[in-house]
Simulated scan of single mutants.
Amino acid sequence: MLIDSHCHLDFPDLQAEIDDVVARARQAGIGRMITISTRIRQFEKIRALIERYDDVFGSIGTHCLHAHEEDDIPLDTILELAAHPKVVAIGEAGLDYHYDYAPRDVQARGFRKHIAAARLTGLPLVIHARQADKDIGDILEEEMEKGAFSAVLHCYSSGPELARRGLALGFYVSFSGILTFKSAEEIRDIARFVPHDRLLVETDAPYLAPMPFRGKRNEPAFVANTARILAETIGLNESEVARQTSENAFRLFTKMPRPDGIKAAA
């Protein structure tokens, strides 16, 4: 079994044939999918999916690219929506200096609000980081001093220093189809130093399809391709990577139950 720890099943690219997308994921051995919120005001789309499919879980949060659109949403609203039994994470939230759609101070304020939500709920924070490594690391370290919280650096494409800072805080690192790109040797080097018990795999579907599907629409079934390259990269076989990354996902997303008949590793 594999777990797609980050996808966007509510996005139009996948919604048009969502039943088939979920069916193909199941056929590929994907036992759990976590569909990630990008706008709190569109949570009903997430709710519909997680209540429709037993193996789909969700998060609640505002993507930093939309931070200015939902800056007025209070922390209490996040906490209320996070109480849904199938919401297993907070976010995604963080900093994105590549597009700069939202003012950087607004992004930072939203990031800290989501960290507070993760701390108060005990749910892990899903972190988006793009071209903002130092500021991301500084905020995470400052906030950790206020009280512990768990998190994952999702779709890892930053430099080695942010990975090390995140790992030092006890966080997980998730790799997407980027890991399979020929140009991504630095990302593969980072995967090699991440402890095996902190590794996750994801698609970030409908984006970033792994080889040999690069340039096409991504979907959860393709996480198997990323897991295969991760196995080659870190010197494990595919079944070991599937077992390890699934165990890691259940350890991080503590609210997400295991499928019937799947027990924790001894």
Rank of each mutant, 00 (worst) to 15 (best):
E247G: 04
A205W: 04
M211G: 05
A249H: 04
T226Y: 08
E219I: 01
P212T: 09
R214T: 11
E219V: 00
T226I: 04
A231W: 05
L208N: 07
N225A: 13
R251D: 11
K216A: 08
T203F: 05
A242K: 06
P206H: 08
T233R: 14
G215T: 06
G215V: 08
R228A: 14
F213G: 00
A231S: 15
E202H: 13
E238N: 09
P259N: 01
N225S: 14
P212D: 04
A205E: 10
P257L: 05
A221R: 13
P220I: 05
M211K: 15
E232G: 12
I229T: 14
A242E: 10
L236I: 05
A209S: 15
R228C: 07
A221M: 08
G235L: 11
L236Q: 10
N225R: 15
P210H: 09
M256A: 07
A221I: 03
T233S: 14
K216Q: 14
K216M: 10
V223W: 00
R258H: 02
L230P: 11
E247C: 04
N237T: 11
T226W: 06
E219S: 07
A224F: 03
P220H: 04
E238Q: 14
F250P: 02
F253A: 01
R217F: 05
E240Y: 04
S246W: 02
S246V: 02
T254S: 15
T226R: 06
S246K: 01
P220C: 05
L208H: 09
P220M: 03
T254N: 05
T245I: 07
E202M: 13
V223H: 00
N225M: 11
P212A: 06
K216I: 01
I234L: 11
R258Q: 02
P206T: 10
R217H: 09
F222D: 01
F213Q: 10
E240P: 09
M256L: 07
P206Q: 11
A209C: 13
R258D: 01
R251A: 15
Y207K: 10
V223I: 02
P206Y: 10
